[in-house]
Write a protein that binds this DNA or RNA. Structure first.
Lengths: 139, 139
DNA sequence: GTGTTTGCAAAGTGTTTGCAATTTA
DNA sequence: TAAATTGCAAACACTTTGCAAACAC
């Protein structure tokens, strides 16, 4: 017999962040977190789920992505004004983005260094520094 | 009498970048480029134009913003997945962004330094490096 | 005059919402 | 059973497009 409680870790993880481990959330969490870090849009995750035989509505995909983001197990990446990308890597890191193809790729966090950021405007504080290295196919 | 050819510079500038200096383009260019650098959305520029008594449709605002961007006299800034911001400052520089209020502000280019960017993926080259310093009101 | 630009209204995207039916605990 | 979650369809916000009328040269 194969592993007895294959989803136990995922279930616990969802519980830990205060989300009921429903069938949909479990299935989506498995797609997102089993394996390497990934970057997905709602549409991508939806069709992937359908292909995998998971019955989920697009509305639930959006809800889930936002719930996961609020819970801190996903992070939103703003690179394209028309699409919202979500990143399963929530550590500090930055991105390569190929505008032509919509391809998003991590740059490991330790490599890029941002220095000499001036003090933020009065009454505000820094929540995050995002570096986006925009790329084009070499002609 | 006040300045005799107040728009002459703007007319020339549009001609230089290959755009006919139509009434609408001229008026929008004046709103955008007379004065300090600014960050606008289509909606902001549209209502500003109407307030200033300039009759322009929203469709023309969008067309014009994109034409100006293609012509290199505007630059698009991606910070918010729901809104497209345009920046009249086309020099190399980065941004402060207050998510709560949608406020976008330049960081002078020379101050921020980004180092140790790894080589981009095979077959691509860097077009631009964007740094977005996200802020929140200090509670 | 000829080609460009404009404005309208309609169509398109991607995303969010209201609410009844379902599921979880 | 009580509270949370889901799915659908309708509503949304922002942006783009098609095409006839208006304009620049």
């Amino acid at each position: 017999m194969e592993g007895a409680r294959p989803f136990a870790g995922t279930i616990e993880r969802l519980r830990e962040v205060g989300l009921r481990p429903t069938r949909q959330r479990l299935a989506l969490a498995r797609l997102l977190f089993d394996g390497a870090d990934r970057h997905v849009t709602a549409e991508m995750l939806h069709s992937e789920a359908l292909t995998a035989g998971i019955k989920v509505s697009l509305a639930t995909i959006y809800n889930t992505l936002h719930q996961f983001t609020r819970a801190g197990i996903l992070r939103q990446v703003v690179v394209d004004p028309t699409r919202a990308y979500f990143d399963t890597n929530t550590d500090e890191h930055h991105h390569f983005f190929v505008e032509a193809s919509g391809t998003l790729e991590d740059i490991p966090g330790e490599r890029v260094r941002v220095t000499d950021i001036p003090a933020p405007p009065e009454g505000t504080e820094i929540t995050r520094v995002d570096v986006i290295v925009r790329l084009k196919p070499r002609g």
